[in-house]
């Protein structure tokens, strides 16, 4: 087919450009709800990324297990001591939980805090300057739904934006256009934290007269109905009087996205009727 255009390359060039432009416009329109093209592309990328992840992960683990055994003894000791500490912590939490269960008053709060999670590995990360999304090796088959909250032990990571049977695409809270409902630990001041594509979140619409101190911790407020209440988001690193009515507040997320390897995805809240 290409030989037909050898003498008229400009025609082919313009045709390809036009097709690409049509593709772009379709997607931009679909931002209101139709994500078919992005979904299809994820469908093709996921198997490749999964295979790569499987091969690299297995090789890495084999190397660590059988080749780099030098630190195994030290590591074993460290893990044993950590395990003992964790057991104590588990007992403490168990005691606290049983106390909470006794009180019927806390039943509603329990429903907000207890949720089912699924551990998923990150199989690809967008290396582009224009996107910071990443893919995980769990999808609809594992019970993950669109807009499911994605967490890590450090705090909130993001939410699922596109989903496939074997994989899903996650949008971090730091992405431009993403937002999370937050509450400050000390003042209990609530608001919306917005991502701007950088490593910091912007806390907007907080009036200048409110006192927000640097070093305060921001937790999820649960108001967005995506992230459960009480999960750590980040630390206030900047709080200055704004030029207009609102304060200029920046929050640094606890999650280090460059070192993230596994995440927890909320499958469904325990006790929910869904």
């Amino acid at each position: 087919m290409i030989h037909a255009f050898e003498r008229r390359p400009l025609v082919l060039f313009i045709t390809i450009l036009a097709l690409n432009l049509v593709l772009l416009t379709v997607q931009v329109r679909s931002e209101q709800g139709l994500f078919l093209l992005r979904k299809w592309s994820l469908f093709f990328v996921t198997p490749v990324a999964s295979a790569m992840y499987f091969v690299t992960d297995k090789s890495e683990k084999t190397l660590r297990r059988y080749v780099f055994l030098r630190r195994a003894q030290q590591e074993n000791q460290r893990l044993l001591s950590k395990n003992a500490a964790l057991q104590v912590e588990v007992e403490q939490l168990r005691a606290m939980q049983s106390m909470a269960v006794r009180s019927a008053h806390y039943s509603l709060i329990r429903r907000q805090y207890l949720f089912g999670t699924l551990l998923a590995g990150i199989i690809w990360k967008s290396s582009s300057f224009h996107s910071d999304h990443f893919g995980i090796n769990a999808g609809t088959r594992e019970g993950i739904r669109r807009n499911a909250a994605v967490l890590s032990p450090e705090g909130v990571v993001g939410r699922v934006v596109t989903i496939e049977p074997f994989g899903a695409e996650v949008e971090p809270i730091t992405s431009r256009g993403s937002a999370v409902g937050g509450v400050l630990s000390r003042t209990r001041l609530q608001g919306v934290l917005q991502g701007n594509g950088s490593n910091l979140l912007e806390w907007k619409l907080i009036p200048n007269h409110e006192r927000v101190k640097v070093g305060e911790v921001a937790y999820t407020s649960g108001a967005d109905r995506i992230y459960p209440k009480g999960l750590p988001i980040g630390l206030v690193v900047k709080s200055e009087r704004g030029e207009m009515v609102y304060r200029d507040i920046s929050v640094r997320p606890f999650v280090d996205y460059s070192r993230l390897e596994e995440v927890m995805v909320i499958t469904k809240p325990i006790g929910s009727r869904e």
Binding site: P9, L12, I16, S41, V45, S126, H130, H133
Partner: peptide, 24 residues
């Protein structure tokens, strides 16, 4: 030029799919 444009498009679309940006 015809082959170069066609290959450019293929590599570009592949890059879009892997970078998770707008296809095209």
């Amino acid at each position: 030029p015809a082959k170069a444009a066609l290959c450019g498009s293929a590599f570009g679309l592949l890059a879009d799919a892997f970078f998770r940006v707008l296809l095209g």
